[in-house]
Design a protein around this nucleic acid. Structure first.
Lengths: 338, 338
DNA sequence: GCAGCGCTGGAAAGCGCTTTCCCGCCACGC
DNA sequence: GCGTGGCGGGAAAGCGCTTTCCAGCGCTGC
């Protein structure tokens, strides 16, 4: 085993041309090479099974073909959908996606960014929601700064203010529209299963929802906070139930939380939507097929991943660009008239 | 912008030591460096914000810190769970995960492997199920061969016979046990929503299921094939319904297919489990919370990812190792007595 | 007929790091 | 006192590529 890798030099020698020529033929260049030599090189490369050493290329060109993708948890459909979008675009561009998972720890995000910088990644998409914690914000900003100084581009999904390209879903507007739609169903008393208080996305959705209720002249909702996970939703729902709230409709800040919440309600004998309506946010594909199908605010998740990857790969100007994507309220069976 | 990256040479110069010394301090080596110099180097590196150039290291060491992970579709919970396991182990080992998605095209798998080889990835986990198609099998085998010759390790999830380390779920045994369990519920007429006929995993599960039915003295099931996706399950279920089969219990080759099938049944007014029992395979987390909760064969998906990553990273001997993981039948609300 | 040009091919200088090899130094042992 | 090791430090040779620079050559234009 370990028959050492075929190098460009071997191909060149075998084909009877110089290293330079072989390189020009095999790895593209502005320079022309006569068809004759070109053929010969191509043929020998093929015969020898030559594969260029990406590290060497990266070193020589001072730029790699790596694109970073940082998510909190790849099993979360929200992230896996975005990941699908990002990988599709990146692979189409002949790039390679490096997946980093933070487990929702902000410091991991910084570490990953630094690793990506070490690899001279061409670009990185930060899909994780940002926190409002000052210290980690600052460290992250510093890493992002370092990363761009080194020539890499950074795009964030769902959080602007970092001076990077950003894909911003209409969290606030979506929450607001959803609240209005639910109000139209006749609900008067609402509860919200909010995400962690320090998460910007959670805050925006909550703020939007409250605004929507206010628009409809409805009293502010009871708010219970929990983490952005199935279990977070489950716990929050139990807490809500324990609080003897009289809400007839509950809004979970994400579909995944809504899923957990529905499980909790079911366990406690609360029927959805007869006893309690419930709506989520994101529209993750799986929950369209469940019973009852979940009302939610649809976000084009894969599209968002594609857009983020597009922003980060198209060279882009020097200005930070922001692409807004709207959420669309989709009422399904989990919310009933009241 | 583009303040060129800090290099080892700059750190060395600034710290007043040689390149060699700086390298030894910062990037580990068998050699000792006096505490005095060591401190100085560390300090300057810190001050300058030095980050080693991973490409250069890879080139010089002739080995990179990349681990490949090839899946068909990252939005499929089956794959995203495995991916979570793989990334956890890889990140813990200080390695970087490269995610490749094939979109279920075998030739993409070969391409990705070749790319990974170009990057001198240290190892790769092939999570996609293998087909029985001779030609693509051969090309894949050749790439795997090339990859290992170059010193990389390869592990497959759920498909042996490739001469690589493998994590093999008990597809056949699981199918068989499930069939028996369903037979015990009193069902006599079964249908199977099988995966694509050329997929080994699909064949194994089907074969196991048939064997289990045979064990119970039950007639062979009606089999409808469809792709390993939600839509595949949906279509297959419609086809089954159209065939006027009198089955009272249907086994979908994967949970994801079962999800699609349940949607189809629901649309057609077939109640689960009253009119029709249904069971899947994999036990993807989301479907534990649905109504009715899906009966299935539980596979420890994340664990499988961890094991695969472990196999591929622990150096390993020269022998191809196989780790079998058992599936566990879990009967839930989607299957009723008959 | 020759300067000038455009074009192709090759030699060679890096890219940023690791690692071998060598050198000087000190502590020993005889 | 000096030969021996052992050890810490530095010079320099790569690792496999890209790319600049130069040489040669066949043309065109006057």
């Amino acid at each position: 085993m370990s028959a050492r890798q075929v190098t460009l030099a071997e191909v060149a020698k075998q084909a009877g041309v110089s290293l330079a020529t072989a390189s020009r033929v095999l790895n593209g260049s502005t320079r022309q090479v006569s068809g004759d030599l070109s053929d010969r090189v191509l043929r020998t490369a093929e015969e020898l099974g030559y594969v260029p050493n990406a590290s060497a290329q990266a070193l020589a060109r001072n730029s790699s073909s790596l694109v970073g993708l940082v998510v909190h948890d790849i099993t979360d459909p929200y992230f896996s959908c975005i990941a699908a979008g990002v990988t599709r675009v990146a692979e189409a561009a002949g790039l390679v996606v490096v997946l980093g998972t933070t487990g929702r720890r902000p410091e991991r995000e910084v570490e990953l960014l630094s690793t990506l910088r070490a690899h001279r990644a061409r670009a990185v998409v930060l899909a994780g929601s940002r926190t409002t914690d000052r210290a980690s914000q600052a460290r992250l900003a510093a890493e992002i700064e370092a990363f761009s100084e080194q020539g890499g581009r950074v795009a964030c999904v769902s959080q602007a203010k970092l001076g990077t390209d950003t894909v911003v879903p209409g969290n606030r507007a979506g929450g607001r529209a959803l609240a209005r739609a639910l109000a139209e169903l006749g609900h008067k008393r609402f509860a919200v299963l909010g995400g962690p208080t320090e998460l910007v996305v959670a805050r925006d959705r909550l703020a939007g929802f409250k605004a929507g209720l206010a628009d409809a002249g409805i009293a502010p909702p009871v708010v219970v906070h929990g983490s952005f996970t199935r279990d977070g939703g489950y716990e929050a729902a139990l807490e809500l139930l324990a609080s003897k709230s009289r809400a007839t409709c509950v809004f979970a800040a994400t579909d995944v939380m809504a899923m957990g919440a529905m499980a909790a309600l079911r366990e406690r004998g609360v029927r959805v939507p007869e006893d309690m309506s419930i709506a989520g946010f994101d529209d993750i594909p799986t929950l369209r097929d469940t019973v009852p199908a979940l009302s939610t605010v649809r976000l084009p998740l894969e599209r968002m991943g594609e857009i983020a990857a597009g922003l980060v790969l198209d060279g882009g100007g020097d200005e930070a660009r922001t692409v807004r994507v709207a959420g669309e309220v989709v009422l399904r069976a989990s919310t009933a008239h009241n």
